[in-house]
Simulated scan of single mutants.
Amino acid sequence: MAAILAEEKEEPPEVAMKKELTVPAPCVTWPSAVAERYEPLEKLGEGMFGDVYKAWDRVGRRLVAVKRLSGRTDERFVETSLRYFAREAMSLASCRGHPSVVKLVATHADSARSDGDCFLVTKYAGPLNLRQYTRLRSAEGRPFQEAEVRDAMRQLLSGARRVHGAGVLHRDMVPENVIVDGRRDGKKVVYRICGFGVSEPAARPSRDGSAPLASPSPYRAPEIFLGSQDYDDRVDTWGLGCIMAELLAGSGEPFFGADLDAKVFEKMQRAVGTQGIVEWPGLQKLANRDLVAELRETGCATYTGCLREVFPEEMLSEAGFEVLSGLLDANPERRLTAKAALRKPWFRRFSFGGCCFVP
């Protein structure tokens, strides 16, 4: 067992620390080197590859999140290879220091067995993911106001800009991979990007289809739906556009949700229109398929889009809609990057003497 990366110590307020340590510890089985350093406090969730616990770091004297990646296949989890573990760890490390990306604290790999588990330790970022938070707000009858959506998107796009600037494609921008800290006594809610399990280098020269498919279908960009392996960081900004639509809708459910992938794709095209994807030059490069003809045969090529009808001006200003429609442009070459989106008027904080200042 080896710790690969360590971070500076950081102690939370004494009152909060005592409160956290009074929670009965869950029963988990971790290798001795992990269990000796981290005391599990409560389970935060689980996914395909493992589970996540809030824990107390006895060495750093701080709250952390310990993500266990299963080294073997069992009834609950899919095996995670060391290659995927290293990829996630390196992606997090390359983005360290940005307030809208979870902070990597340490990594551990169980070398005692060939199929040992791996552990990613990050600074504890909050009790809920964005899906849980949105559903909670919906149940409480507290819809998101436009200013709240703008603040959330500013943080998430700023984090995405840092991720992309570090040469990383996240490839799984979904509400479950956004941690929300809303317990701030009237201060603004903080949103942080996590879940780099299917990330990859932005400069990867080619993709052979062996990597995990980017994003579940309600958040999958149109070009990936159509089988393109030639994509860039705008697959992430598409996912952020889906998140923005969900915040505005306020139900806590996927905006393009449906029971079958084909229905998701049709719902997507009905909302944003098909002109963008039909005009995309890359459509003609996809091998052995006349996709434009297929779209016409299914009737999809005539969809003009209804996004503005779904989000009228009384719900979302013209400046806000410019960002939403730019993130959800079906043509990836026209779709906004994170950097370009942040320069839109919707995000301008103030102006002075005709000069606008942007984040």
Rank of each mutant, 00 (worst) to 15 (best):
K103Y: 02
L92S: 03
L82G: 02
L63W: 00
E75D: 12
D74C: 08
C95G: 02
H98L: 15
V64G: 02
R72E: 08
G60Q: 06
V64H: 01
G97R: 11
L104V: 08
A89S: 06
S91D: 04
R83H: 05
S70A: 14
S81E: 06
F85W: 00
H98E: 08
T73C: 09
S81G: 12
V64S: 01
R61Y: 10
T73I: 11
R76T: 13
E79H: 08
E75L: 15
G71P: 12
F85E: 00
S100F: 06
L82Q: 03
S94H: 02
V102Q: 02
E75C: 14
D74G: 07
L63Y: 00
V66N: 02
R83Q: 13
R72I: 12
A93C: 09
A86T: 03
Y84C: 03
F85C: 02
F77P: 07
A93V: 05
S91K: 07
A93T: 05
G97D: 09
S70L: 13
L69F: 03
E88K: 01
G71Y: 01
Y84A: 06
T73P: 10
A65E: 08
S100N: 14
G71R: 03
A89V: 11
A86G: 03
S94K: 10
K67N: 06
D74R: 06
V101K: 05
E79W: 07
E88H: 02
R61C: 10
V59D: 11
S91A: 15
D57P: 15
T80C: 14
S81D: 06
V101F: 05
R76H: 09
D57T: 10
V78F: 04
R87I: 09
R72K: 13
L82P: 05
F77N: 02
F85D: 00
S100M: 12
L63V: 10
L63E: 03
S94I: 12
V64Q: 00
K67M: 13
K67Y: 02
R58D: 07
S70D: 04
A65T: 10
A93P: 10
V78Y: 05
F85Y: 03
R58T: 08
M90C: 12
V64I: 08
S81L: 15
L63K: 01
Y84E: 07
L82T: 01
V64D: 01
D57G: 10
G71W: 03
D74F: 08
R61L: 15
C95H: 00
F85K: 01
L82Y: 00
E75W: 05
L82K: 03
K103F: 02
K103G: 01
R83M: 12
R72M: 13
R87N: 04
L69W: 01
E75Q: 12
G71F: 04
T73Q: 13
R76E: 09
S70M: 13
K67L: 14
E79K: 13
L82H: 01
L104F: 06
S94N: 11
R68V: 14
T80Q: 04
E75R: 12
C95P: 11
R62G: 05
R72Y: 05
Y84L: 14
G60F: 09
R68I: 15
K103A: 02
P99T: 09
G97V: 15
G71M: 12
V102H: 00
V78M: 14
S94T: 13
